[in-house]
């Protein structure tokens, strides 16, 4: 890089429940081919926040401790999820268990309403969010692009919203860009993190160009042929998308306009044949 040039990238900076966050890429820790690939991917992504979960422990495996030590060694903030919970009651109990284990009041709240689409149950989500917020949790709700659900979640005390791009693990990208754009417009001051359904760096860049604050990924990196390189590709795309948003994209037009000046075009007006 030419050091005489100013750094073109504004250092990203936003706040989640009052905590300053530098990286706009949040990364999941599941589905990697090995623990080493997972930790290398987190580093390559430059992620400052990773998602984790709680699962039934087996007396034989005792696998939780090793995993948590690995995560601690990364020196990143953890966001436990309530993945797989189908009722507010399950999600609330899981969030409490996660808070005790991980020592954080952050929770990525998932209440799943449908096994095929893994679509959030927005009614259960709101109920669980209210209960957890009254218990002192900082709730990051995994929601859809629904504006009214977003409003209710904000009223309940969710300071951050995490709308899906597409169903978890599909990699389909922004399935409903119009609705996501509306969400961004209606909630200009609420941190909005696109969570789930991102498959390619271009999807993440598109979300960032729309002005979303961050992207949460897992499968797209973990299931890449080379997860560590893919983590780097996502980091670059997210930075590019954010910079583009801050720089201000041109308006799209229906008609062509020449970019090269028309005045002074050689041979102008000579073609009379």
């Amino acid at each position: 890089m030419n050091s005489a040039l100013p750094d073109p990238v504004t250092p990203p900076s936003f706040r989640l429940y009052g905590v300053g966050v530098t990286s706009r890429l949040l990364l999941g820790t599941a589905l990697y081919p090995s623990p080493k690939v997972m930790t290398d991917s987190v580093k390559a992504a430059g992620a400052g926040i990773v998602t984790v979960s709680v699962r039934r422990e087996s007396a034989r495996a005792n696998s939780g401790r090793g995993f948590f030590e690995l995560i601690r060694s990364l020196n990143v903030r953890v966001m436990p999820n309530t993945a797989g919970c189908r009722t507010p009651r399950e999600a609330i109990a899981t969030a409490h268990m996660a808070r005790e284990l991980f020592g954080t009041d952050w929770v990525k709240l998932e209440v799943i309403g449908n096994d095929d689409t893994l679509q959030p149950d927005l009614f259960g989500l709101l109920e669980a969010a209210r209960a957890l917020i009254s218990d002192g949790f900082k709730v990051f709700p995994y929601t859809t692009e629904d504006l009214i659900a977003a409003e209710r979640l904000r009223e309940a005390g969710c300071e951050v919203l995490m709308p899906w791009a597409a169903p978890i693990g599909t990699g389909r990208g922004l399935a409903n860009p119009y609705a996501l754009r509306s969400l961004r417009t209606y909630f200009p001051d609420t941190p909005l993190i696109i969570d789930a359904g991102i498959g390619a760096p271009s999807h993440a860049a598109a979300a960032m160009e729309m002005g979303f604050d961050a992207v949460l990924l897992n499968t797209a990196v973990a299931r890449a042929a080379d997860p560590v390189r893919m983590a780097g590709a996502f980091a670059a795309a997210i930075e590019a998308g954010r910079t583009a948003f801050e720089a201000g994209l041109m308006e799209m037009r229906d008609t062509a306009t020449p970019s090269t000046p028309v005045a002074g075009t050689p041979f102008f007006g000579l073609d009379k044949s």
Binding site: L31, S53, V54, R55, P80, M97, N218, T219
Partner: peptide, 24 residues
């Protein structure tokens, strides 16, 4: 954690014991 000692078990109780794990 602090309430486990005082939590008495009865037949057919359903106990969940969980630990940290990978998540998305």
């Amino acid at each position: 954690r602090g309430a486990r000692e005082a939590t008495r078990l009865v037949g057919d109780d359903k106990v969940e014991i969980v630990s940290p794990r990978q998540g998305g």
